[in-house]
Write a protein that binds this DNA or RNA. Structure first.
Length: 159
DNA sequence: GCCAACGTTGGC
DNA sequence: GCCAACGTTGGC
């Protein structure tokens, strides 16, 4: 099993939106970066665990966990000229972009903020904290995943 | 709103 | 293949 972090702007799609979905599952369309695509297409497997991250806003944070409910398949939004993710270079015969299905696992009672993570020595190597790290989908180590869970737990008990 | 850090595009 | 121009992401 692998571990990932997936970013979303809560104004566009939040963890609350995910919680409202049927079976708390949604397809993760719209990734239009080759590095991210390659990771999703080649490495994302059903059952992988995900840190669900809210970017932008005044307190960017990991707000919960999810899992991969379905491995990569073509992102058909790329074929829809009415979609904001439309890409004329992609076609059903030769799909350029891929997506996965994501299912909510647990929304944290207390988010683990970016600044808290920056202050955690055990997360020093985390991709998210690297300068210029912009990938919307990125790998996380198992220990980083566990540390974030513990931080969420600690924040909850403190609150 | 600013801007650093990328990524992409397209002329040459 | 180089690189300038432009676009995007996302923290601050």
């Amino acid at each position: 099993m692998k571990y990932w972090l997936m970013k979303t702007e809560p104004g566009t799609y939040s963890i609350e939106d995910l919680a409202k979905e049927k079976r708390k599952t949604t397809c993760w369309e719209g990734v239009r970066n080759y590095q991210a695509r390659n990771m999703m297409r080649d490495d994302f497997k059903k059952g992988d665990r995900v840190l669900f991250y809210h970017s932008g806003g005044k307190d960017p944070a990991v707000v919960g966990t999810a899992k991969i409910a379905k491995g990569a398949y073509p992102d058909h939004f790329a074929w829809d000229s009415g979609s904001k993710y439309y890409d004329p270079k992609s076609s059903p015969e030769n799909p350029r972009w891929f997506m996965v299905d994501v299912q909510l696992d647990k929304a944290f009672e207390q988010p683990v903020t970016l600044s808290q993570m920056r202050n955690e020595p055990q997360l020093e190597q985390m991709e998210l904290l690297r300068k210029g790290s912009r990938l919307s989908v990125q790998p996380v180590t198992e220990s980083e995943f566990e540390v974030v869970l513990k931080m969420a737990e600690a924040a909850k008990n403190k609150a």
